Amino acid sequence: MSHIALVTLVVDDYDRAIAFYTDALGFRLAEDTDRGDGSRWVVVSPPGSGHGSTGLLLARAKDDTQRARIGAQTGGRVGFFLHTEDFARDHARMLAAGVRFLEEPRHEPYGSVAVFEDLYGNRWDLLQPAK
């Protein structure tokens, strides 16, 4: 069996990114290892994720080309989908934590959804799939 273990997200600063993903989105810091060359291996995972689930590798940009991609990794499209079992609870918690939602919640045939931006402007769906 195969699965996607990590998705790289280019960031400007490890600690600032960790703070956003853990404090504002409620992710857990799964790993933060100094690599000895000024870089770190930083992985965050959504709440409730377990072994075998996909995490985010927060990779600090190393040069101008990578810095130019921060926040624009998907060309302005929603590129990340955060599923929840309780949309109203998580939407309220994220609003209170200062997360910027780009729209009011919508209730679609596939579930409850609202688009938000992360610290860098990457677009995410907060989504509670329909049962």
Rank of each mutant, 00 (worst) to 15 (best):
D90G: 00
T22P: 11
L58Q: 04
T84W: 08
P129I: 05
K62F: 05
P47Q: 10
G76F: 13
D118V: 08
V115T: 15
A68Y: 09
G111Q: 04
N122D: 13
F101G: 00
Y21F: 15
S2A: 14
L82C: 02
I70R: 11
R60F: 01
F101K: 00
A59V: 05
H83A: 04
A59T: 02
E103Y: 06
G38F: 03
P46G: 04
D37C: 04
E108F: 13
D125F: 14
G48E: 04
E104N: 11
G52S: 04
R100F: 04
R16L: 05
H3T: 14
V99E: 06
L58D: 05
T33Q: 11
D12P: 08
D15Y: 15
D12G: 13
R40D: 05
E103K: 07
G111M: 00
L6I: 10
A19V: 12
I18V: 13
D37M: 01
D64T: 05
E31D: 11
R100S: 13
P129G: 12
G38L: 00
I4A: 07
D32F: 04
A24Y: 11
V7Y: 07
L127H: 14
H91W: 13
F81H: 10
Y14S: 00
G38I: 06
V11C: 08
V11Y: 05
A68N: 10
R67N: 09
F87T: 03
M1W: 12
G52P: 02
E108Y: 10
S112W: 07
V42M: 01
F81N: 11
L6Y: 14
G76D: 14
Q73E: 15
T84P: 11
L25D: 04
R77L: 13
A68K: 09
M94W: 03
V115C: 12
D37I: 01
T8F: 09
V44N: 03
V7M: 08
L95E: 05
R77A: 15
A5P: 13
G48S: 05
P47I: 06
A97Y: 12
D125P: 05
L102P: 04
A88W: 09
R89W: 01
V115F: 06
H51Q: 06
L82H: 07
D86W: 10
S45W: 02
A68H: 08
R93Q: 08
L82D: 01
V115G: 07
R93E: 07
V78R: 05
R35I: 02
T8E: 15
I70E: 14
T84D: 14
A97F: 10
I70C: 05
E117Q: 09
M1A: 14
K62E: 11
L126C: 04
G71S: 04
I4P: 02
A97W: 11
M1D: 12
S45L: 12
I70W: 09
